[in-house]
Design a protein around this nucleic acid. Structure first.
Length: 463
RNA sequence: GUGGUUGUAGCUCAGUUGGUUAGAGCAUCAGAUUGUGAUUCUGAGGGUCGUGGGUUCGAGCCCCAUCAUCCACCCCA
């Protein structure tokens, strides 16, 4: 059998993994700075936990797990019958009742619903785990990818929404990625639907305007027309989506369009509140990265208030983060009145962006620091003891396993990017010293054995 | 889910309108030299041409299917 990987999945070798961990650590550190606590949930959920939460398209992209025991001959007939339901596009518990998680928000909601009595409310959790989607892979899109989520559940306070925006800014500043953090509010989108009499058709409306920066105003209008919007409404929508200026100018202009409806008023007020806080706390630089964008819609249909989306500048890539406020997430699981707000970082896309823009620090790899050469039986035994002493003092070392020719041992060191080699041959053993060579500089010196540890400690190779 | 691209040695690729034993560079391994490495020289191994069918006297090349890849759409991180 020829080994291969399932579509859209990847192995990660050391170099990649170290860089991924660098990003994860950065995100994790910021999450913890803001008081979030870690949580992990199983890779699979009951199918009914996930179905219907991500819209029709989303349901199709959920990886479903086939039940065991379907090959039981005694149940063949009912299995065939049940499979008919699957073919008809319906789910059937007898065939599949579990699925791989599609995101981290719904599992979190499920967890909240199951533990609402025990948790300290508001509950702030972060979760960094892979998710799976049965999408066709393409640039920046994988079937297995890592999400890094932070959610706050149990408060309507917009301070939590504001904190999440700050987290986006902090993380990307630390990673040195220039970003555009887009902000909108679902209530404003809803208000637009109201004033254009398309509340029932809000999905078509949001999908169309969300595409503005991709397909342009003309095509958006065409799409609206074919979705049945009247000319009057289309020109109103055009006014809406072409609003420009500074953030506060945008808020002023939107007033004229949706300011008369209840939800419009509310949405504007909420955004205004957030902006006031952000303008007060952010540095001048960071203020520029926050941008109100009324065309931002986001597909997930459980959002009800603030919505976020982050795009990297100077690179062609889908959004590298997104999130929003949902005022009733656990309601679906029988626990009412549990509002929340959350954001997600797309690790894999962040990685791709950093790779493309060359943003990873040089010294991110922490290979072995010292390689002890193997120059024979007695010599290696002696070297081994010295090496263990170094290891116990947190210096990562290796001893070459075979007594091979020196050039082979040198090659191993340079291929593994090991900075120093220690050579102990019979001469050195007699004289109780060793030769330390810096491979990058090509310099070497003789050091007494008992000063070896001190020597490397001084170099303080770790960062 | 729809459409297209690509798949030849460990890696990057070449391979004429179908025509004998499928090539190169790099890498690998062995040997030649030095108790001190990215140099040089010599030699070697390694491919059921993604997989399975078909057309043909003959297929790496043509046809079909399938798997994977990259990309666009849909949607999304």
């Amino acid at each position: 059998m020829k080994p291969s990987l399932p579509q859209g999945t990847r192995d990660f070798a050391a170099d990649t993994l170290r860089r991924r961990r660098y990003i994860i650590e950065t995100i994790k550190n910021v999450f913890e700075l803001y008081g979030f606590e870690p949580l992990e949930t199983p890779s699979m959920e009951n199918l009914e936990t996930l179905m219907g939460k991500y819209g029709e398209e989303g349901d199709k992209l959920i990886f479903k797990i086939l039940n065991n025991g379907l090959d039981n001959p005694a149940k063949k007939e009912s299995a065939l019958l049940n499979f008919e339901h699957i073919l008809a596009g319906k789910n059937n518990k007898q065939i599949t009742e579990r699925a791989l998680r599609y995101d981290l928000t719904i599992p979190f909601a499920r967890y909240m619903a199951m533990n609402s009595g025990k948790l300290t409310i508001p509950f702030k959790r972060y979760q960094i785990q892979p998710v799976w989607r049965a999408d066709r892979p393409q640039k920046g899109r994988y079937r297995e990818f890592m999400q890094c989520d932070a959610d706050i559940a149990g408060t309507y306070s917009l301070i939590s929404d504001i904190e999440l925006a700050e987290i986006y800014i902090d993380v990307f500043k630390r990673l040195k990625i220039e970003v555009d953090v887009k902000l909108n509010n679902r209530k404003i989108l809803y208000a637009l639907a109201e004033v254009t009499g398309s509340v029932d058709n809000i999905n078509a409306l949001t999908i169309a305007i969300d595409k503005l920066d991709k397909i342009g105003i003309k095509k958006v209008k065409e799409e609206l027309a074919s979705a049945g919007f009247s000319e009057n409404n289309i020109s109103l929508i055009e006014k809406y989506i072409t609003i420009d200026g500074t953030n506060s100018e945008k808020l002023e202009k939107i007033e004229a369009i949706v300011g008369k409806t209840e939800s419009g008023k509310k949405g504007i007020k909420e955004l205004q509140f957030m902006l006031d806080y952000l303008n007060n706390s952010l540095s001048e630089d960071s203020k520029q990265t926050i941008n109100i964008d009324f065309t931002l819609a986001r597909g997930l249909n459980y959002y009800t208030g603030t919505i976020y989306e982050v795009k990297a500048k100077n690179v062609q890539m889908g959004s590298i983060g997104g999130g929003g406020r949902y005022d009733d997430l656990t309601g679906l699981f029988g626990v009412p009145d549990m509002p929340g707000v959350g954001i997600s970082f797309g690790l894999d896309r962040i990685y791709d962006v950093m790779e493309e823009l060359n943003l990873f620090p040089e010294n991110i790899n922490q290979p072995t620091e010292v390689l002890f050469f193997n120059l024979g039986e007695k010599e290696s035994k002696h070297a081994f003891k010295l090496m263990q002493e170094m290891r116990h003092n947190n210096i990562s070392c290796e001893l070459f396993y075979e007594n091979s020719k020196l050039d082979k041992q040198f090659k191993y060191a340079s291929r593994k990017n090991i900075a120093h080699v220690v050579i102990i041959g019979s001469k050195e053993m007699e004289e109780e010293n060793c030769v330390v060579k810096d491979l990058a500089k090509g310099e070497q010196k003789s050091i007494p054995e008992n000063e070896l540890l001190k020597y490397f400690n001084k170099l303080s190779l770790r960062f």
